[in-house]
Nucleic acid binder design. Structure first.
Lengths: 173, 173
DNA sequence: TTGCGTACTGTACGCCGTTCAACTATATTG
DNA sequence: CAATATAGTTGAACGGCGTACAGTACGCAA
């Protein structure tokens, strides 16, 4: 806030004539940024490829505005109009890809969480140079795409029985 | 800090005799929490099921300590000894599952990012009740497991050609 | 001209992480 | 046992943060 006010060459509290709180400001900026995401035209083109491109575009947009990616995770959903628009586009793509019903919002959440999470991970070279290689960031994008492909493949697959050992994953908890 | 000091019934600055900074404290706590993750014994059992269980256990541990999940994302890697131990276990499981070479660390990062990201997402009912259902949290765990299965399926698949439309995902950028 | 709404400023409150010098127990040593 | 080193704590304070409140300059319709 104070930094922003300085950039605008006004007193810090002047901001509160235009914004109710820092949180609200960030929310607004967040949704604005989402407008930069390139979404495929609805109804045409391969839906799987559309999802692929949509998530990659989202990832890249997040990387460009890296400093507000943490804020993105802090609030989870992003209720703004742009977020909503992207959500509808995703659902449409998923539907045309054969994912509908209860599976659709699940798949959507998974894709979103994965994308934002990976952006958050990629967003911070400055931990410490040196040991074990900080992963220069270029490679991370490739890594993101790999995971995205795996995810899309799994989502598209009709029935995924990954766990061969009977009812695994069931612990006493 | 001040809150913690109050709980310990000491002055706030007394903490700094034991910890160099708030960040260092959180890092230590973070790694401590990671000790609670149940890891399968190395070398035995189905590796795919092992990964499945390992990530689910991680997810559950994160949910129990929900308030420090954001901190978990803030620092990305978690360099502590427990984190390292889990990393080695994951690589061993991946190797036995047929994932090795350059693919192994990729798969590991994807799994970790997905798990932490989803935990971050699941960690905050208190946004606002009401419209569009805040997803009670029980369902979110099922959602997490679904995505995990998709991911594991994709990782295990030999070659994933998700993108039917030629070289998609290649934008000018 | 009067009145009003909008944008701004000065000042201050309460909170935060953190630092520094001083004190006090406890343990160590001769 | 006395002297001293050491670990742990404290009071006070600094600088920074988001934000609230009261007041003020300005533009504009009545």
């Amino acid at each position: 806030m104070r930094t922003l006010a300085e950039r605008l060459e006004v007193a810090p509290n002047a901001l509160y004539s235009h914004v109710t709180s820092k949180t609200a400001l960030i929310d607004a900026v967040l949704d604005d940024v989402l407008a930069e995401v390139e979404a495929p035209a609805p109804g045409v083109g391969d839906p799987s490829a559309g999802l692929h491109d949509l998530m990659i575009s989202t990832y890249q947009v997040l990387l460009v505005h890296r400093d507000l990616v943490p804020a993105y995770l802090a609030r989870q959903g992003a209720r703004g109009p742009n977020a909503q628009r992207l959500g509808e586009i995703m659902l449409e793509l998923l539907d045309r890809a054969g994912v509908s019903g209860a599976r659709a919002p699940e798949a959507m959440r998974v894709l979103i969480v994965y994308t934002i999470g990976f952006a958050a991970f990629a967003t911070r070279p400055p931990i410490d140079a040196g040991a074990s290689g900080p992963v220069p960031g270029e490679e991370l994008t490739g890594n993101f795409v790999s995971g995205l492909r795996w995810l899309l493949a799994g989502i598209a697959a009709p029935n995924t029985a990954v766990n061969p050992r009977g009812r695994a994953g069931r612990r006493d908890a």
